[in-house]
């Protein structure tokens, strides 16, 4: 009897070796959700907005509803430099040919000059006269529709 029980113990101890696998499903779910979140929020239009421009703050400005058919974003620095499509133009007076080029580009896309939305992102410390000068330059190129871009005031 002692001998039999001895062999039985041996068989009981024998176990199959298993590969340990963690359940990756929740982690993959979370990762995909994070990717979806960042994809939705990512903004590739960084070229249009110059980060060095500190916009004035406003409580009442309305966020733009949709993108117009054709828009020109002009960033104005306090010193009078205009940043347009990542390019710094050091004198407002030389904006004419650039704006005329934009107007003809828009016309090729069947957008009239009057329908082109000009977005002015001016630094809070820029003299208003420079903003008006820039608007006047745009008017010389038949542009009429202007938006003054500001930062939305967030009540803390």
């Amino acid at each position: 009897m002692d001998g039999i029980s001895k062999y039985a113990m041996k068989f009981n101890k024998k176990q199959q070796s298993k590969v340990l696998e963690g359940d990756l499903t929740p982690m993959i779910d979370m990762t995909f959700q994070l990717i979806a979140f960042f994809m939705l929020l990512i903004n590739f239009s960084e070229v249009d907005r110059a980060e060095e421009i500190s916009l004035p703050v406003s409580e009442l400005a309305v966020p733009p509803d949709g993108r117009p058919d054709y828009q020109i974003i002009l960033n104005l620095e306090p010193g009078g430099n205009v940043i347009f499509e990542g390019q710094r133009i050091e004198n407002i007076n030389v904006m004419g040919p650039i704006l005329n080029q934009e107007v003809s580009n828009a016309e090729r896309e069947n957008v009239a000059a009057a329908d082109i939305a000009v977005v002015i992102r001016s630094h809070a410390d820029s003299p208003t006269g420079l903003v008006q000068k820039l608007i006047s330059k745009c008017q010389d190129s038949e542009l009429q529709s202007f938006s003054l871009r500001v930062k939305e005031y967030v009540n803390q």
Binding site: L55, P64, V119, E142, Q144, K151
Partner: peptide, 12 residues
């Protein structure tokens, strides 16, 4: 930060 616009019409 969220940005907003003031629309101004400057007819020729």
């Amino acid at each position: 930060a969220q940005e907003g616009d003031f629309n101004i019409k400057m007819p020729l």
